[in-house]
Amino acid sequence: MRQSIEAVNLTKSYGSFIALSDLNLKLEGAKCIGFLGPNGAGKTTTLKLFTDMIRPSEGHALVGGIDVHSNKKEALSSCAALIETPEIYPSLTPVEALSMIAEIRGVPSEERGKRIEDSLSEVKMLEWKDKKVGRFSKGMKQRVNIASVLISDPSIIMLDEPTTGLDPRGMSEVREIVKSLKRRNRLIFMSSHLLNEVTDVCDEVAMIDHGKLLAYDTISNIILKFSENGSNIIEVGFSRAVDDSIIAEIGKLGNVKGTSKIDETNLRVEISGDIKAREGLLYELASMKIGVISFKPSTSALESSYLNMIKETL
């Protein structure tokens, strides 16, 4: 089965209200794609169409090249999804709830026990494995829900705002889980309205508003295309405090339009130009041997691009 998710002229309307309009989007390969948009933009609608929880008014939702609506069992055989915050039968324990999903998905019986333990361990719920789910907090239930996605070791994963209901530590842990899935060559399609989450975890981003796809590209290209003045903001992390002389040196580098200190060891660098300019900056910073330990597009840059894009659709 191909590792792909594809929307072909996908439309969903409720009477005169169009929740999703003629979406054409093809996601392939092992990577994480963030799905961004304001509340009511059509993110959850799209994910529900990909899991056959709702029917398309027009078009097709394909997972692994197979139409989900006409052949759901085959289409979702290698795909697991977490849509909204599902409730689990309150009288079941996490082990039982995950056993049900494992049986439904055909996890071999000899592997089930270990898979359940591993999944619960990954979401830090192992010590609660034999307690009834009905007594869990929303965050704990969401952890079990995430474990249910991991249980079958799927090649395609769809997550609808997976950190909803989690405390900051839980959110961070979920991001680490998504990153580890990425390292294991999964295709992850994750809706979120948390820009820092998308910047931290995703390689690419699809932006949607009013049911229409606004853009789909790598995060850096989105920032380049949609930032107000074509600038590109990078957050650079250092292993030690950066002093003013170093900041001045960086300010003199080619394509650098400005710098601002985030804190003692982090600097925001605004550059002009495309991906090549960014590559050049990284090379020059490394050559300076000033203790650069991280280099990533700024969350605020994505936020700025996002707000510009949303503003254009108002």
């Binding site: 929880m53 599902p86 689990i88 999903i101 439904i104």
Partner: peptide
């Protein structure tokens, strides 16, 4: 109503 369907329906099951 209780959203328990969200736990099962999104799986490869009719």
């Amino acid at each position: 109503q209780n959203k328990t369907g969200y736990f099962t329906v999104g799986n490869p099951i009719r």
